[in-house]
Amino acid sequence: MALNTPQITPTKKITVRAIGEELPRGDYQRCPQCDMLFSLPEINSHQSAYCPRCQAKIRDGRDWSLTRLAAMAFTMLLLMPFAWGEPLLHIWLLGIRIDANVMQGIWQMTKQGDAITGSMVFFCVIGAPLILVTSIAYLWFGNRLGMNLRPVLLMLERLKEWVMLDIYLVGIGVASIKVQDYAHIQAGVGLFSFVALVILTTVTLSHLNVEELWERFYPQRPATRRDEKLRVCLGCHFTGYPDQRGRCPRCHIPLRLRRRHSLQKCWAALLASIVLLLPANLLPISIIYLNGGRQEDTILSGIMSLASSNIAVAGIVFIASILVPFTKVIVMFTLLLSIHFKCQQGLRTRILLLRMVTWIGRWSMLDLFVISLTMSLINRDQILAFTMGPAAFYFGAAVILTILAVEWLDSRLLWDAHESGNARFDD
């Protein structure tokens, strides 16, 4: 018995066209964080690309023209004298008006014999932002004059995390709450300039795509075929072959399989920071003279006294001054041990922890910024005066060393310790 099946006739004509040209192939790229070699397709503007294995951002879609970056830099340069030299806060102490600005706080630190601690604050609040705007201006002028731009481009990517104007702005709020127990506070004209400078700096850093600047100024022929001998440069993120001198053909720094002496430098910085954190938390970090009496505060006791007036601000200072430094030390110690013992479990967790400490590390400088600003506000000789204690130097040095330890660690070593050939990683 035959089955009668109805015929289905399409209502619209289906047209099949042959592909007349070869589909576009992607360029081969190595991930600078996990060293995976993959094919990167062509990316349009405002599109980002991520590593298929570790999800690290390979290409950032946010990109401004150099002219727009230069305009932002010149605007920031105009704001800087007002943000640093004009009063941020006014207080009335014992019937006398006192003005506080950024430069005055750094000068008070240096004047009291601790120039190293003052230079830490100076670099993060004044030096690094000033280098940022002058570097962008150098790129703008240098591109037109045919100057060598490689050193500036190499420095810009590392400079971003040292620009800490946003953290200093939080420190202004913390210092205001600490001082309000002794005097009446009012915002100064410099505060508005400083807030504007923070906003412009944040926007500029978020749109400063150094890798795209490398592509514009020093374009290189990408690798179009897969080759395990391809290496990625950690300076400019170019994937290719080393030249005859073993250097990256684009930025001219040595092109090595792994960062040289990464573990040794990381261990040295980490152990030194552990040693410095002990006096930083045991010795007094601030000293207040009130009517001839002397009151010393460690980091913890200062947080407890701050909690009596504002528990939320005390929580912020606790996280930045105690929780973050010790968390960074514990995480980095764990990561280094996992590399030495070739741990194969929990790779995803370790990668996330490394990215976390990379982002939060700079916030530990908050305590030094609060001390710097408070020193310029309260300084009335023996009637009422505020000065920093010996722990300030140890704390600042420990924070900087932990930042350097994270920067010096080559994250690809975590993958080397893991089993080879993993296309995915999980716990």
Rank of each mutant, 00 (worst) to 15 (best):
I96M: 08
W107V: 03
V198G: 13
I319Y: 07
G85A: 04
L282I: 11
Q345W: 15
K265Q: 10
S338F: 14
A183V: 03
V174H: 01
P52C: 07
L368P: 05
A280V: 06
H46R: 05
R231V: 14
Q33I: 11
Q29A: 06
Q47F: 06
Y182H: 07
V406N: 07
D381F: 04
M375Q: 12
M103K: 06
Q264E: 04
M356G: 11
R144K: 13
F393S: 08
G127N: 02
K160S: 08
I322D: 13
F192L: 14
E42S: 06
I43R: 10
L409P: 03
M375A: 05
N310M: 09
K265A: 05
A73D: 06
E212A: 15
N209C: 11
N281M: 12
L23T: 08
E228Y: 11
I322Y: 05
Q104W: 03
R17Y: 07
E228P: 12
I316F: 07
P284V: 06
E211S: 12
H46W: 09
H90C: 04
E407A: 12
P219G: 15
A71R: 01
L373G: 02
A70C: 12
Q186G: 07
K178W: 00
Q382H: 10
P249C: 12
G113M: 14
A405F: 04
L79D: 02
Y241V: 13
R158S: 15
F341W: 10
F369E: 03
R350V: 08
L234E: 15
V133D: 01
H184P: 05
S262C: 10
T110Q: 15
P325I: 01
R247D: 15
I98N: 03
T387G: 03
T239N: 11
H90A: 10
I383M: 07
D27V: 07
A398N: 11
R350D: 08
L384A: 05
M147F: 06
R59V: 04
R68Y: 07
R350I: 06
I299D: 02
I131G: 02
T11E: 07
K229H: 13
C251R: 00
L79I: 09
P24L: 08
L401V: 13
L368Q: 09
G292K: 08
V189K: 15
T67Q: 04
P325E: 00
L132T: 06
N44C: 13
L300S: 03
A398F: 02
L78D: 03
I91P: 01
L191A: 12
I322A: 11
K328H: 00
V170K: 02
S176H: 06
T349F: 14
I185K: 01
Q244R: 13
R226Q: 13
V399Y: 01
E407Q: 09
G302P: 00
A70V: 12
F194P: 01
I339V: 08
G302M: 01
F369Q: 06
L354T: 12
S45R: 09
Q180L: 13
M1S: 00
M304E: 14
V163G: 04
L270N: 09
K160V: 10
L208M: 14
L79F: 13
R362D: 01
E419S: 12
L300D: 03
I285L: 02
G361M: 00
W408Y: 06
L404E: 14
F318H: 07
F369W: 09
H418G: 14
S193W: 02
G171V: 08
M120V: 04
T15Q: 07
W64R: 05
T201H: 08
T110A: 08
V331H: 03
L404Q: 15
K328A: 00
T402M: 02
N379M: 02
R144S: 13
I316W: 06
I311Y: 13
P284Y: 05
N291P: 11
I98P: 01
L213W: 10
L77E: 04
K342W: 11
F395Y: 10
R144N: 08
L88W: 02
T334L: 15
P87E: 05
I400T: 06
Q382S: 09
V232L: 14
S372Y: 02
L197H: 05
A385M: 04
G127M: 02
Y28T: 10
A196H: 12
S376V: 13
L3A: 07
L373I: 08
A56Q: 04
R158N: 13
G113E: 08
R412I: 00
S65K: 08
N209W: 13
L323E: 02
G235F: 06
T202S: 15
K328Q: 01
L335K: 06
S193N: 03
M109V: 06
V313H: 00
L89I: 05
W140V: 15
C34G: 00
L366C: 10
T67P: 10
I299A: 11
R53F: 08
G293D: 02
L40D: 06
A196E: 06
R256H: 11
H237M: 14
A391K: 00
Y218N: 08
E21M: 07
I96G: 02
I126D: 10
R250P: 01
F333P: 01
M332K: 08
E212P: 14
L300P: 03
R221K: 13
A137S: 06
L169D: 01
F341I: 14
P10L: 07
I319P: 08
R68I: 09
W107K: 12
L255V: 05
D166G: 15
